[in-house]
Simulated assay, not measured.
Amino acid sequence: MSTSLRMVELAPGGATDIAAIDAVMSEAFDPRFGEAWTRSQCLGILGMPGVWLTLARAGGEVAGFALTRAILDEAELLLIAVRPAFRRRGIGAALLRGVIADARGRGVTRLHLEVRAGNEAVALYGAHGFVKVGERRDYYRGRTGQSFDAHSYAVAL
């Protein structure tokens, strides 16, 4: 599979894309960490005001997505995922840049996210100006009951 950054297309998504985002989550999130959302959680939030879904397509396939919620002048990147076969090709960075641009366009001045401690995506967030602002102990629960800390990050837009 050959995918380059030039072939990444970002587009808005919605509830009709739930099967695609569910498929991405099942591939992208390791169940031992408890980070993925259920289909009903995704559908529930997609209907809320200020929520938007961004899909990344590469080679005609949904390669990743980002789910974001804005309230007044702040937003939170709720989920971002890239299918393993499409990683290390700039898709996560393209999604993050797209979310930042969309948030700015909505009048957002600060973007937040939360990530499991030890998640390698922290390097991507740091490269886009995010800084650690907090920590939640034992936030994520994996399928075996093991808990993992969550770190909160934010960037001024």
Rank of each mutant, 00 (worst) to 15 (best):
residue 53 L to N: 12
residue 115 V to G: 02
residue 34 G to F: 15
residue 40 S to L: 15
residue 30 D to Y: 09
residue 137 R to M: 10
residue 7 M to I: 06
residue 84 P to Y: 08
residue 152 S to K: 02
residue 35 E to T: 09
residue 111 L to S: 11
residue 74 E to D: 10
residue 116 R to W: 04
residue 40 S to R: 15
residue 65 F to A: 07
residue 59 G to N: 10
residue 63 A to P: 05
residue 152 S to E: 00
residue 5 L to Y: 01
residue 140 Y to D: 12
residue 144 T to C: 01
residue 36 A to W: 08
residue 132 K to S: 11
residue 34 G to T: 12
residue 9 E to W: 11
residue 150 A to M: 00
residue 3 T to H: 01
residue 114 E to P: 02
residue 17 D to P: 10
residue 78 L to M: 15
residue 9 E to R: 13
residue 151 H to L: 10
residue 100 I to G: 04
residue 104 R to I: 14
residue 70 A to N: 06
residue 8 V to E: 04
residue 5 L to K: 01
residue 7 M to T: 06
residue 4 S to V: 05
residue 123 A to F: 09
residue 28 A to E: 07
residue 22 D to L: 08
residue 11 A to H: 14
residue 37 W to P: 06
residue 95 L to Y: 02
residue 79 L to N: 15
residue 5 L to A: 03
residue 133 V to I: 08
residue 80 I to A: 08
residue 120 E to Y: 03
residue 112 H to W: 15
residue 6 R to E: 13
residue 95 L to N: 02
residue 145 G to S: 12
residue 31 P to I: 07
residue 54 T to E: 01
residue 11 A to C: 12
residue 77 L to K: 01
residue 1 M to D: 07
residue 103 A to M: 12
residue 28 A to Y: 06
residue 71 I to Q: 13
residue 67 L to D: 12
residue 34 G to Q: 11
residue 39 R to G: 10
residue 143 R to T: 11
residue 33 F to P: 07
residue 49 P to T: 03
residue 151 H to T: 08
residue 43 L to G: 14
residue 104 R to V: 15
residue 30 D to P: 14
residue 10 L to G: 01
residue 62 V to R: 05
residue 133 V to S: 05
residue 57 R to L: 04
residue 64 G to W: 03
residue 67 L to K: 11
residue 3 T to P: 00
residue 98 G to L: 00
residue 58 A to F: 01
residue 46 L to S: 05
residue 68 T to L: 07
residue 52 W to Y: 05
residue 116 R to C: 01
residue 11 A to Y: 11
residue 43 L to N: 13
residue 16 T to V: 15
residue 121 A to D: 04
residue 85 A to G: 10
residue 48 M to V: 07
residue 80 I to S: 06
residue 149 D to G: 02
residue 20 A to H: 08
residue 9 E to Q: 14
residue 116 R to Y: 07
residue 99 V to H: 01
residue 69 R to L: 05
residue 7 M to P: 06
residue 90 G to D: 10
residue 70 A to L: 13
residue 120 E to I: 09
residue 93 A to S: 15
residue 5 L to E: 03
residue 147 S to H: 13
residue 64 G to I: 04
residue 93 A to V: 12
residue 63 A to Y: 00
residue 31 P to A: 06
residue 37 W to E: 07
residue 45 I to L: 12
residue 102 D to P: 13
residue 7 M to Y: 13
residue 71 I to P: 12
residue 81 A to V: 08
